[in-house]
Amino acid sequence: MNVVIVKYNAGNIQSVLFALERISVKATVTDDKELIQSADKVIFPGVGEASTAMSYLKERGLDKVIISLKQPVLGICLGMQLLCDYSEENDTKCLGVFENVKVKRFISTNSSFKIPQVGWNTIANLKGKLFSSIEENTFCYFVHSYYAEANSFSIATTNYIQPYCSALQKNNFTGVQFHPEKSAKAGEQILKNFLTI
């Protein structure tokens, strides 16, 4: 199986590579359009800032490549947010795969809600193959200041300050806000599930 991780100017791709290695999958990290287009599975990771990441993708024509992919695509964290329509982070128009889904900034309602949300939180209302054999309220690892609001593509929800959408799916595109590559055994299972979709 030919797994490609999209290389761009956002964040820590190494953790994803190591996580795949632990489940015996060798992935290629590349920004080469043809390699991305010919992959069996594409992982679109990322931590960083939305507008800089979008500019980078556009300059290299990767924005058009990503939205036209037909094979399974998994966006992680910022990668998931960029698959949405719009992000409040520096007023950024995103890729629009998940139509009309807005990414908003957490607004803390009291001092116990720190921003970013850092740590382990549960995922619930799970739908689809990505979560096969994953129980409701499984813990996953999150690090983020922006979240996708509730929407019709939701396949998981999480509660921090308010309920929000922590995973989405539309056709071949899946996005998760948490980091499966850092979410212990559950995360490994979710990555395995994605690779068998």
């Binding site: 190494q14 190591f18 632990r22 690090v143 980091h179």
Partner: peptide
Amino acid sequence: IATHINIP
């Protein structure tokens, strides 16, 4: 360490 552990 990174190749052995699956938490941050």
